[in-house]
Amino acid sequence: MPTGVALHDAREQLFRAAERVLLRDGPSALTSRAVTAEADCAKGVLHRHFADFDAFLAELVEDRISRMDARAAALRASAGAGGVIGNLTAALMELFDSVAVAMVGLVASRDALRARLRRLTPTGVPVLTEAAAAVSSYLAAERDLGRVAADADVGTLAPTLIGAAHLLFADREGAPPQDDAVRKVVSAVVAGVVR
């Protein structure tokens, strides 16, 4: 006899269930049983759609990374409009929503998952590496427009911004930082290069 409810988009529903478990209970609580219980479906549903649980987790992270592409494009498109510090602050506030921070924790806690993700992100930490690329691309566009110094090392500034912002957002228990705290960090990092 089947258990649970019918899943119309099983893959996405399982991903959302995994995110809820991850946000509520942390990476160590993320098991196939926890995900299927959260999705209210039989355990076999996950294994019908994914080779194993590590494959499921890898596809979850890859899917969430691919969603960053639209954010990266929007950030790059904002070059020349508004203020550089304001644009970076808004982008970091959006980027480090609770799911992105949780994904970094998940990747950091599972060696097998990191190994699978190496084909997508050969170096660095998946999610953070893609975020740094988005910020670097934006800063390069602003440099081309003259709003960032011509000699600015955007390849160093971008991961510095991502690392500093990640430290602000990394506390799973506390409230996320406010806009002014993120703006203060952004200002400190890019103060010498913004025109």
Score class of each variant (00 low, 15 high):
residue 73 A to I: 03
residue 77 A to Y: 15
residue 32 S to E: 14
residue 72 A to G: 09
residue 81 A to D: 13
residue 139 L to T: 13
residue 33 R to I: 15
residue 101 V to Y: 04
residue 86 G to K: 06
residue 44 G to T: 11
residue 52 D to N: 09
residue 8 H to S: 12
residue 162 I to E: 05
residue 58 A to W: 04
residue 20 R to S: 12
residue 110 R to Q: 09
residue 74 A to G: 11
residue 51 A to Y: 06
residue 153 D to G: 04
residue 140 A to D: 12
residue 148 V to F: 01
residue 175 A to F: 00
residue 102 A to M: 14
residue 176 P to N: 15
residue 134 A to N: 09
residue 16 R to T: 14
residue 195 R to E: 08
residue 23 L to C: 13
residue 92 L to W: 03
residue 61 V to S: 03
residue 136 S to T: 10
residue 110 R to C: 00
residue 5 V to W: 04
residue 175 A to K: 15
residue 103 M to I: 05
residue 10 A to Y: 13
residue 163 G to D: 14
residue 19 E to C: 11
residue 86 G to Y: 01
residue 25 D to E: 14
residue 91 A to T: 12
residue 190 V to H: 02
residue 88 L to W: 13
residue 164 A to N: 08
residue 125 V to L: 05
residue 165 A to M: 05
residue 157 L to V: 07
residue 99 V to P: 06
residue 53 F to R: 15
residue 85 I to F: 03
residue 163 G to T: 15
residue 59 E to C: 00
residue 109 S to Y: 01
residue 125 V to A: 13
residue 49 H to E: 15
residue 28 S to Q: 13
residue 35 V to F: 02
residue 111 D to N: 11
residue 95 L to I: 12
residue 114 R to C: 10
residue 130 E to R: 07
residue 79 A to I: 07
residue 18 A to F: 06
residue 57 L to Y: 03
residue 168 L to N: 14
residue 136 S to M: 11
residue 157 L to D: 11
residue 41 C to D: 03
residue 68 M to P: 11
residue 68 M to Y: 11
